[in-house]
Design a protein around this nucleic acid. Structure first.
Lengths: 165, 165
DNA sequence: TATTGTTATACTCTATAACTATA
DNA sequence: TATAGTTATAGAGTATAACAATA
């Protein structure tokens, strides 16, 4: 589908309005950073999800692999906190990763209630590989970024994320 | 909770690493624009959702109101396409907005299969009010933005959104 | 008494298929 | 035959409550 943008500028809101390809006026939604952030995130995630799916995992499972990759030995609850999900959601997720042979539950040394999580050998190469593929797919979006804009974006996003913590 | 960031720089990936407040290494996830985009979007949405909830609607319902506000007379299916959801999901949503007295289904003039959607008088003031409140809450995030950064961010996000369309 | 992993449960979102009435 | 609104349904994702084992 060809993109056809007629862009205007609203002197009242100080916001660029666009009647988009479907000729619908998004002025109010476009005035909100949160809404554009959501749409941009969805665009990235479509790409990201496809890359994960090709390799047989979901974005959520990749998040767990990425955390355990850099932090071997964390408990399930610690990983849950790291990715800001509930520990109850971890059970099925770790089950899946175990069945895929990517992760191992080992009894924790000091606490018989908890497991320590480790990637298997296969899990390590799988995770590194998937990370490379995701980065390669992400590079597509850098076509629209000028020199230095990516670093600027990463930095600004980090400031936003850290604001209320 | 105080924020305590120890920031380092990974000469291999060229990515700033941070052992975050919980002392967990997010290097791999932080190297992905998509992941930071998601976290930043979640931060914005927490704020946005709270503002909507105070007024008795959800972010999804606000999206419908915002579209119909600027595009009165659209059919349900057209609005569904505008916010990129399925028309089947519109039914319950418009039902709710109707019960709240914010929106009206009127028989379409040329096509007896479809309804044209319009905001009621109350719906118009409600939507303008909510929009103002959301903008006010969003202003909180501008604390972390330098001069001109907000416009630059909006512009870059728009380029990302429009890339594959 | 508090915490870990677990199960059951529920609620939202999203997507699909099928039905009806119109076109 | 195709489309609009509708209904039913099913799958992810997320959140809560409760339980047994352990701290």
């Amino acid at each position: 589908m060809p993109k056809l943008m007629k862009t205007a500028f609203d002197p009242i809101s100080g916001v660029s309005m666009s009647r988009e390809r479907n000729d619908i006026d998004y002025t109010m939604l476009n005035s909100l950073v949160g809404y554009r952030l959501r749409r941009a995130q969805l665009a990235y995630f479509e790409n990201f999800t496809a890359t994960c799916t090709e390799q047989g995992v979901t974005p959520g499972l990749f998040g767990i692999l990425a955390i355990v990759y850099h932090n071997p030995g964390l408990t399930q609850t610690a990983v849950a906190q790291a990715i800001e999900t509930d520990r109850s959601a971890m059970v099925a997720a770790v089950d899946k990763l175990e069945k895929l042979g990517l992760i191992e539950r080992r009894p924790a040394e000091n606490d018989r209630r908890s497991y320590a999580l480790f990637l298997t050998g296969h899990g390590i190469t799988f995770t590194e590989n998937l990370h490379r593929k995701v980065l390669k797919h992400e590079a597509h979006f850098e076509e629209v970024m000028k020199d230095g804009e990516k670093d600027w974006l990463l930095d600004l996003l980090t400031r936003i994320i850290d604001l209320d913590r």
